[in-house]
Nucleic acid binder design. Sequence first.
DNA 1: CTTGCCCCTGTACTAACTACAGATCGTAGA
DNA 2: TCTACGATCTGTAGTTAGTACAGGGGCAAG
Lengths: 137, 137
Amino acid sequence: MSKNNSVTNLLRSELAKATGCNLETIRYYEQIGIMPDPPRTARGFRVYGEEHVRRLRFVMRMRELGFSLNEVRGLLTLVDGGTQTCAEVHERTLAHLSDVRARITDLKRIESVLEETAAKCSGEDVPECPVLDALSA
Amino acid sequence: MSKNNSVTNLLRSELAKATGCNLETIRYYEQIGIMPDPPRTARGFRVYGEEHVRRLRFVMRMRELGFSLNEVRGLLTLVDGGTQTCAEVHERTLAHLSDVRARITDLKRIESVLEETAAKCSGEDVPECPVLDALSA
DNA sequence: CTTGCCCCTGTACTAACTACAGATCGTAGA
DNA sequence: TCTACGATCTGTAGTTAGTACAGGGGCAAG
């Protein structure tokens, strides 16, 4: 019954340093169940192992890619469950991809409106601003 | 002393319908000072005029263009103040434009990562998922 | 022995709304 | 006249993804 599933024993601040994740964010992830409650030392300090590092890195990567915490939660249950994982993951990746593409399209529209707007303006110190008028219309 | 500065007298629900803005959002904008407290009827109902419609439309347009409520607040003080407006507006528009462009660049990076990731996956029902492995790494 | 540091906990704050509970008021129908 | 309905009003809480701060405990060095 010897527990040798974790090699490194990290405190919370060390996990934060190791992953680049904010200290408080780790606690937050534990509160909402994205990260498991880690074991504690006799003094009550959280102790993390390799598996926590891996899981947190995964979460951070997914967040970077724009997945919401709920989506990340979903992906994690796939990881944890391990059943027909690949097809599901593929599907969710594609769904998220189309989401990202929609946001890009949206931002491009905004970009061109802002470009037009800026072009209309001479940049001089005129009290009457054609840009504001254009935008209000 | 006759007040004829507003032609239309709209209730809140009518302002909402006229602008497409959510009813509750209007109250919220009043709470945070984006919209002014409107005059009331004897029964305490809010009454809006043309100037409210115009202002709310402006706010909505700016929000659509991705300005934060704080930025909108700033633009509104320029509108209200009316001093050296144009140069300032030009500047803020450009600042926001570069912001939008940065977000586009970011999303494009995410897009290509997701594309690569999805391409790696066959979409078959394999329990071991190369995508998840790739994403964790 | 006291100062400082690191850890702990709980709570409040952010943005930009949305939603719901409970009060009131005027009018329309029975 | 009584009651029900619809519209408005107010205040408060929930959402997402964290960040920040207040207050308490224990260990170690000076």
